[in-house]
Design a protein around this nucleic acid. Structure first.
Lengths: 225, 225, 225, 225
DNA sequence: AATGAATGAGACTTCATTCAT
DNA sequence: TATGAATGAAGTCTCATTCAT
C-alpha cells in the first residue's frame, strides 16, 4: 500500500513548491490507513505511521495536530474513495433494454468487489473497533457512504419498477434486501476480510442473490425462472 | 453482566474450598469482557479490569498469565453462551403443523434478538478489531458458533423441504440467505450495536425477511402471498 | 544532597516492610528538590529526578501522580523544615537578663544563617520562578513559614518592650524592619544565593543591623550607643 | 509594553530603510519579555514569542540567533530602562534646603514605585529563576543597575552628611539600610509582585522606613522625632 | 492464593532549530 | 530579509508484567 503510485507523482516532484506539502499529506494519510488497518488505532504508533510515510514524526503532527484527527481524516479520505467506487457500480444498473437478470448479476458482482476490497474490509473493521471511542466515524461511513449507495440503488430499482420490469412498492426495502443477499453470504466466506474471495466465487454469490431476489421481485414469472 | 452457563463450572461451585477461586475467575472474565468491550483490547488496562473485578492486578496475572490469554478465555466463555442462545432460537423451528410463515417469523425474531444483544454486538466488534492480531479468535466465534447455528438452521429447513413445505435443493444456501435477509437490514438500523433496536422493529424486519424468503422458497404459491 | 544520610537508614533497610516505601518517598522528595533547584521546574526531567533518587521513573509517578504534585510536595516538605529552623533561631530571643545587644546580634546571626542556607535560597528562587504557574506555592512558603516567623519575632519583641527594654508600640513593624535590616544587605552580597557568605560576614551584617535597630528602638540611650 | 529608552536606537529610527527591521527587533524584544515573564524561560515557546510579536518564528532566529541570546538581549534592554528610572528617583534627593524628612519620604516613595513596577518584579523573578543557568544575567542586573543605584544613593547621603544634616561615617551602609527598610516590608505585601500595592500603601511604608532611618541617622534629635 | 510496590519499555506530543524559497 | 515546512531530540506519563510478602 505504498502511496503515490501512478503519474501524478513525478510531476509533483518537480513542482516542488506547494506540491511537496500536498504529497506529504497524502503519503501520511495512506500510511496512516495502512498502519491503522494493520495494528488498530490504539496500537498503531505515530512513529510507525511516520516511518511508513517517509516523514518525521513531527511532520505528522504539523499536518494533523493529533492522532485522533489523523484517524478522522483518514476515514474521510477513505469514505470519499469508497463512495465513488460504489456509485460507479450502482450506475451500471440502467434500463438499456438488456436482460434484467444479467444486469443485476453484473451490478451485484461489482458491488461485491467493492465490498470485498481489502481497504473496504479494513475500514469496516476499524470502524467496528473504534465506534465506542469515536462514534462520529459512523456518520462518516454510514451517512456519507452506505446510506447514499443504498439510496442510489433504490432509485435505480424504482425506475425498473416504473418501467414494469420489477414489482415492488418499497424500493428502499428491495435495495436493502438486495444488498443483504449479496453481502451476507460473503461475510462468512471471507472471514471478516481475512481471506481473499476470488471473483468466480463472487459471481456465484451474486448469481444466487439475484436468483432469490428475482423470485421475490420479478415482474413476470418468466424472468424469475 | 449475566453469568455464563455451562456444565464445567457447576461442579466447581459445590466444592466450597475452591469456591472463592472460581468466583474470582468468573468475576475477572466478566470484568474483562466489560472493559474490553468498552475500551478495546489495546486500550483496556489490566488495572481497570482488576478494579472492575474487585481484585488486585497481580491476581489477574495469577489466573490468566497474560493479557492475550485473558482475551482468548473471555472469547471462549462468550462464544459458549452465544451458541446456547442461538441454538435455542433455531430449535423453535419444528414442524409441529403450525402455520409456516408464523413459525419462520418467530424464529427470525428470536435470532435477531440474539444478534442484537449488547454482548453479541460487543463480541463481534471486538473480533473485528482484533482479527489481525489474533486470527484464531475467528475460529472460536465463527467455527464454534456461527457455522454451527447456520448448520442447525439448514437442518431444520431441510426437514421442512422433505416435508414438502419448502422448495429448495440447497438448504445451506437457503439458511445463509435467510440469515442475510434478517441481519442485513438491522445492521444499518442498529448503528453497529450502538443504538438499541426495539422488539417491534425486529419483528418488522423479521416479517419482511420472511416475506421475501417465502416468495423465493415457499413450496406452494398460497403460502407465499 | 544525597538522601538518607545518617542513622535512620540502616535500621529502615532491615525493617523492609513499610519503611522501604517511606524511604523511597523521602529519597524522591530530596532528589526532586536537588534537581528542581539546579535546573528549574520546567527544565527538570522526571528521569533525572528518578535517577538521582535511585528509583525508576514510574515509581515517582506511583508516589506523586504527576510533576506538579511532586513540586508542591517538595515545597511542603521544605517549608516544614525551614519553619522549624527559623523558629529555633527566634526562640533564642528570651529575656534572661543578658545584654540586649548581644542577644539581638545572636538572633540576627542565626536568622541570617537560615536565610543564607543553600536550600533556603534555592527554595526562594524556585518560588520566584514558578509563582505565575503555581500561585499557591506562595501560600505554603509565605503563609506557613515567613509570616509565622515574623509573628514569633514580633511576640518576642513585644515581651522585651513590656519588660521595658525596647520602645515600640508596633512590634510587628519592628519585627519586619529588623528582618529587613538583616536580609536586605546580604541579598546583594550573596548574589541571589549564588555566592556563599561566610559566617564572619553574617556577623558583621547582623551587628550593623542591630546597631541601627537599637538606635531606633532601644529603650535607654545607653543601650543604643 | 512601554518602549525602552536609550540613545543607540534613535539614530536607527531615522534611517527609513532600516526602520522596519528595527521595529521588528523591538517588537520581538517586547514580546519576548512579555512571554518570558508570563511563562518562564524554559516554558516560553519561541513560537509564542513570535506570534506575540507578529512575526514568523524563523525571523526571531534571524535576529537573535538562539533563545539564550534572546533572553540576554531582553535583560539588557530591561536593565537599561530600569537604571534610568531608578536614577531619576534618587536624583530627587538634593539638598535644596527643604525639610529632610519630607524629602527622604519622597525619594523612598519613588524608589518603591520603581521597585514595585510590574516589569521590575517580572525581571527579578526571571533573574531568580535562571540564575543557575545564566549566571551572567546577574551582572547585568546587579552590576549595571542595583549597585549603581545604591552608589548614587550613597553619594547623595554623603553630601547630606557633609552638609551636617545626617550623621554617618559609612554612607554606603546607610544607603543599603535605607533600601532594605524600604523594600523589605513591601516584599511581603506584594506577594512577589503578584499583588499590586497601591500608592498609599507605598507611602506608608516609605514613611515608616524614613522614621526608623532618621532615628538612627538624623544629625539632630529634633529631626528624628 | 492474593496483593502492594516497583519497573522498563514505549506511547503521544512539544519545541528549538534549520533549510529552501 | 522573512517565512512556511520539516525535523531530531527530549519530555511527561502509562502500562503490562514481576517480585517479595
Amino acid at each position: 500500500m505504498r502511496p503515490m503510485s501512478g503519474a501524478g507523482t513525478s510531476a509533483g516532484q518537480r513542482l516542488a513548491g506547494a506540491r511537496g506539502r500536498i504529497d506529504k499529506r497524502r503519503a501520511i494519510l495512506d500510511a496512516a490507513f495502512t498502519v491503522f488497518a494493520r495494528e488498530g488505532y490504539a496500537q498503531a504508533g505515530v512513529d510507525v505511521i511516520a516511518a511508513e510515510a517517509g516523514v518525521a514524526k513531527a511532520t505528522v503532527y504539523n499536518h494533523f495536530g493529533d492522532k485522533e484527527t489523523l484517524l478522522r481524516q483518514t476515514f474521510a479520505a477513505l469514505a470519499d474513495s469508497a463512495l465513488t467506487q460504489n456509485l460507479a457500480a450502482v450506475e451500471r444498473l440502467a434500463d438499456h433494454g438488456g436482460e434484467l437478470r444479467a444486469m443485476l448479476e453484473d451490478v451485484g458482482f461489482h458491488l461485491l468487489q467493492c465490498y470485498c476490497d481489502d481497504r473496504s474490509w479494513a475500514m469496516r473493521r476499524l470502524l467496528s473497533a473504534e465506534i465506542n471511542q469515536f462514534p462520529d466515524l459512523l456518520d462518516i461511513v454510514q451517512g456519507q457512504v452506505a446510506d447514499r449507495v443504498t439510496e442510489a440503488l433504490a432509485d435505480r430499482l424504482a425506475r425498473l419498477a416504473l418501467a414494469g420490469r420489477l414489482r415492488t412498492t418499497d424500493p428502499l426495502l428491495a435495495a436493502e434486501q438486495f444488498s443483504a443477499l449479496l453481502s451476507g453470504p460473503v461475510d462468512k466466506r471471507s472471514r471478516l476480510g481475512t481471506r481473499h474471495v476470488p471473483d468466480t466465487e463472487l459471481r456465484t454469490v451474486a448469481s444466487a442473490a439475484v436468483h432469490t431476489f428475482l423470485k421475490a421481485f420479478a415482474a413476470e414469472p418468466a424472468e424469475a425462472t
